[in-house]
């Protein structure tokens, strides 16, 4: 893993320019609020980065009717408990930049979104996903052997965007040497308007042969057709022959899951560029 540390850093430093605008129906003041621009880390979560946005826009709303804040992109409510980069890959990867999001203070879509009462909710969700990932990789032993302060270090690393701090602990979760190789790969496959797929998938087959992203997709997605889909992880379209173990070690989000987006591909036009 060490030789590919640069990849980890590149992935960590991925950012998305976002333009936040207040929903028209929430505007309560005569003057129109200015949009708010922000460069947000792909690996973070919206509730961790939007304090200033909310503060700025809330000057223009009816404070007496203020509900829970939520974000929307072209009619799609955005789940706060998905990493930002995943949301962008899933819904915004064809959008012009900056990514234009609408901020709502009313009419919370109960059917689509979970409530996010505070940043603590994001932390407990994040830690839970880490534990789930480790349950798949090491039967939960790596995360259980950690102390509470290690868990905090992971979280603070994400919250404060500190690569070294996060990886000082995360490397224990990414341990694959010798007998310790991942038992299963923590991954989810996302497709627009569908429930995410999650299955058991081993990094190697019974004869020790390394398994690839293509094999993962073919075994977990029914009717997977390469010609009809773009496969996107962390904003890149990896070669389908890439070993899943390498992807899991390098392109996983901080929650230790490989979040794979399957997009329909009328836009395979860019393929000739290399």
């Amino acid at each position: 893993m060490a030789e590919d540390r640069e990849v980890l850093r590149e992935v960590w430093e991925g950012k998305i320019p976002v333009c936040f605008q207040l929903a028209q129906e929430d505007i309560y003041t005569v003057d129109q609020p200015d949009p708010f621009f922000l460069l947000v880390p792909r690996l973070s979560y919206f509730p961790l980065v939007t304090d200033k946005v909310v503060k700025h826009l809330s000057k223009h709303i009816d404070r007496d009717n203020q509900g829970e804040v939520w974000l929307e992109y072209e009619g799609q409510a955005l789940k706060w408990h998905y990493p930002i980069g995943l949301l962008f890959d899933l819904y915004g990867s064809k959008a012009d930049l900056p990514w234009n999001l609408t901020v709502h203070f009313q009419n919370f879509p109960e059917e689509e979104l979970l409530h996010c009462p505070s940043k603590d909710a994001v932390e407990s969700h994040f830690m839970s996903v880490i534990k789930e990932a480790d349950a798949l990789k090491h039967r939960g032993q790596a995360v259980n052997n950690m102390q509470r302060k290690d868990h905090k270090t992971l979280w603070n690393g994400v919250m404060n965007d500190k690569f070294d701090q996060f990886w000082s602990v995360n490397k224990k979760l990414m341990e694959t040497s010798g007998e310790d190789t991942f038992k299963f790969i923590p991954f989810r496959v996302y497709q627009a308007d569908q429930v995410p797929l999650q299955k058991l998938f081993k990094p190697t087959d019974d004869s020790g042969e390394v398994l690839t992203l293509r094999q993962l997709l073919e075994s977990s997605v029914s009717h997977f057709k390469e010609s009809e889909s773009r496969v996107m992880i962390q904003g890149v379209e990896p070669d389908l022959e890439t070993p899943v173990l390498w992807l899991s070690e390098h392109l996983s989000y901080p929650d230790n899951f490989l979040h794979i987006c399957l997009l329909s591909s009328p836009s395979k036009v860019l393929e000739s560029e290399s």
Binding site: H81, L114, S124, H125, S128, G140, F184, L200
Partner: peptide, 17 residues
């Protein structure tokens, strides 16, 4: 050990755990 997100479907959890 872990609490799946409330919007997780049971089928996936069953398949994995």
């Amino acid at each position: 050990s872990f609490a799946p997100a409330p919007d997780t479907d049971l089928g996936s959890i069953f398949d994995c755990f």
